[in-house]
Design a protein around this nucleic acid. Sequence first.
RNA 1: GGUCCGUUCGUCUAGGGGUUAGGACGUAUCCCUUUCACGGAUAAAACACGGGUUCGAUUCCCGUACGGACUACCA
Length: 513
Amino acid sequence: MTKEVRVRFAPSPTGALHIGGLRTALYNYLFARKMGGKFLLRIEDTDQTRFVPGAEEYIQESLDWMGISPDESPWKPGDVGPYRQSERKASYMSYALDLIEKGHAYYAFDTAEELEAMRERLTAARVVQPQYNSITRTQMKNSLTLSPEEVKERLASGDPYVIRAKLPLKEEVRFHDLIRGWVLVHSSTLDDKVLMKSDGMPTYHLANIVDDHLMGITHVIRGEEWLPSAPLHVLLYRFFGWEDTMPQFAHLPLLLKPDGNGKLSKRDGDKLGFPVFPLNWTDPFTGEKSSGFRETGYLPDALLNFLAFLGWNPGDEREIFSLDELIEAFSIERIGKSGTKFDIAKAKWFNEHYLRSSAQEDLIAYLQQDAQAAGTTLSHEKAGAIVSLLRDRVTFPGDFWRDSQFISHAPIEFDLEVASKKWNADAATLLQAYATALESGVAAPFDGTAAKALLESTAEATGIKLGKVMQAVRLAVTGLGAGPDLMEVFAILGPQEVAKRIRFALDTLAIVD
RNA sequence: GGUCCGUUCGUCUAGGGGUUAGGACGUAUCCCUUUCACGGAUAAAACACGGGUUCGAUUCCCGUACGGACUACCA
């Protein structure tokens, strides 16, 4: 029997969860579900200087909103907790000491100034890459160069120190990445990374390996930015003697800027006018606000579908996938290798698709909410009519309210360009007659068909070709030159309101032809 | 600079030694239609470059170019 698949999403709570992080979480979730395994959330808060209040909750809420909640998390602990690294602090030191005992790590007492001096010295000597490594450590203050007595003394007197990994001078580090294949790195290009910081907290590298091991993680699916440090991680597994249970790695291609070059960043969203975060976020320190996909009007299913296809595809030509279908179709092998530019137009297309297939009642609820927020109320019936009218023409739920303003408000001014082209004596004659007919009372129900029949008979009676004046009719009643089916609009407005608007237009618009 | 990773239409991608290099978004045109959308149809649009290997390379290999990540007591 094979081991149960366990994967984790391990963000740091340093701000709003980036959309790229959300995609990483999604892929982890899909893989876990596909394999019948578990998806865990571990908060990597080992850098207390960067901790941002609210960030954890933001991560949780984002995942919940997307429908990809973890099976185990700080809020839903399984039996390998705690799920916050700050709460696991006590355990890391013993692992670091174990490494020292095995000869794979050492104490280092160098001050920031000494490290800086070392880098300057190496740069001056034209060393291409000044780093703390198997060569330079022989000239630094650490437990490899100092006498055992002095080390003991410094430790006892509370001298600040870090623990560094002792990397081999010459060794090929080779590991298999599920997405990239074999990756080969020579240990001489690696440096002696800090494992334990002087504040007693582990760095990412140590905490990550220890926790993944302790939590039984079988697959590490993370961003490509981790690829360069993966060899160090492999070495650490080896040092600990955990190589046989080392997780498999899969390094995801990055999300890139839509235009030029580089990794997609917060600024891009601001600049190009689309969100790069799942939810709205206000930085608690600077007060800076960032908009979210949710508040912009993206449906979770649409965002899910869009995100899944940024770097992955099912291998056939289907594009619309529910979460369940994504789970069914997902495989790590089909994740691409190259970076992916973020194209918001495609996201909109997905959103339109999902919006059109949404339940009528949901859309009515959106519209009624917006109306309420604007200080009015819309009856369920009227909201329903508006939703039916606009359903195929909107991108976001908020568009229902925005694009139906002409229904809630009679025009006070008219599109002058359309007026100059389309408003003429024939139109005025027809509208005059139509308004009179409406005012003299119409049989209920006044639906789109009835409105149209009456308009057609009026046109016939006045001898005016309807096709020639339709746009003028629209202009008179809505103030606009284009829009949804006019007769349905009339039905929603009702005969009295239509007549009233026509009278106003007749009084206001000058005949130019 | 160094190390590592990558490169098929504008974008997301399928494909893979011999194909009219397929799909989707976007764009354009046409149809539908009282307008605008929706929908339908059609079109323009790609294998970064140079060497190999091969009967044949977009596909395999090597270079070059370009892009990206990393290069902290951040993750």
